[in-house]
Design a protein around this nucleic acid. Structure first.
Length: 286
DNA sequence: GGCCAGGCGCGTA
DNA sequence: TACGCGCATGGC
């Protein structure tokens, strides 16, 4: 058990914002698996309390995952001073970007195409339960599994994945796992290389296009200018920046690269959250 | 029952 | 370079 100082950090918004898909809200706490360890997090006044199933000496892995050392105020200062961006920030100023493990992030987003967030969570829960390894949990807690490694995934049959509701994404995930196993792409080599080079590597994987690549670059590696454009962001850019004009996707992508500054990835996440929550109901349809 | 979901790959022009 | 379509599956 430990406590972190966490000012301007909205844990619930962050963990439920469609970046990561394994967090569950149970009895006032958020339960998940980070770096192979079960954890439960609770938001308190200006703090986050964390507990693990086994003694932890150094909590750096969790600080890193939650990105607790990021100065979000400094990032806000780099955002454009326009109405849509300011409204997005005001609607949820404690929203953060997580720093996930690249493989889990990649696999999760390969599962995400034309799926709602709830369904993505279901698919990933099935994958973990069936093919992950048990992790230590508190006494009496229901079993929890790790996210299956790409080595494990590579040895499965396509039908194994289809049984986890992957549908047409099954061969994408399977063949991406096999490419990683065979060393055709090395996820560990993408830290610190140029954004375009890292993106080009990810685009070699089947089922990975620009959108999914940028999700992995942003949520898994922290490339600050990766800007995934999905249907929500496309809607946001069209409604908020180009109302009454039919602007096509390539132009929206170009706009996103220049308009939002050096931390455009954060701007993207704020826009995404804003679009999904404004006009009450969180969920599909406006 | 029709439409949509944190898209991608492929064929076509 | 830029469409259009099919691909599984489930929620509303």
């Amino acid at each position: 058990m430990t406590e972190f100082l966490a000012l301007n950090y909205d844990l619930a918004a962050t963990l439920a914002s469609g970046q990561a898909f394994r967090w569950r809200f149970v009895d006032g706490g958020w339960e998940g698996v980070v770096a192979g360890r079960w954890v439960r997090l609770r938001q308190e006044a200006g703090r986050i309390r964390a507990e693990a199933a086994e003694p932890v000496g150094d909590w750096a892995w969790l600080r890193h995952y939650l990105q607790l050392d990021v100065n979000i105020g400094k990032i806000f200062e780099t955002f454009p001073q326009d109405e849509p961006m300011q409204s997005s920030v005001q609607s949820c100023a404690g929203l953060r970007l997580l720093r996930q493990e690249p493989w889990e992030c990649l696999a999760s987003f390969i599962c995400s195409s034309t799926k709602q967030i709830v369904q993505i969570q279901q698919i990933i829960a099935l994958l973990c339960r069936r093919f992950g390894d048990p992790v230590a949990v508190p006494e009496g807690h229901e079993p929890v599994h790790s996210f299956p490694s790409f080595g494990r995934m590579a040895g499965l049959a396509e039908s194994d994945l289809r049984e986890c509701k992957l549908g047409f994404r099954a061969p994408y995930l399977l063949n991406s796992a096999r490419k990683l196993r065979d060393g055709e792409v090395d996820l560990s080599a993408l830290h610190g290389v140029a954004l375009d080079e890292a993106r080009a590597q990810l685009l070699q994987l089947p089922g990975v296009g620009l959108k999914i690549a940028d999700c992995v670059l942003l949520f898994g590696y922290g490339f600050q200018q990766a800007f995934p454009v999905d249907v929500w962001i496309m809607r946001a850019l069209r409604q908020l920046y180009f109302p009454k004009r039919r602007v096509k996707l390539p132009r929206l992508r170009r706009f996103s690269q220049t308009h939002f500054g050096p931390h455009s990835g954060y701007a993207q996440q704020y826009l995404f959250h804003y679009m999904r929550t404004k006009g009450r109901a969180v969920g599909p349809r406006l």
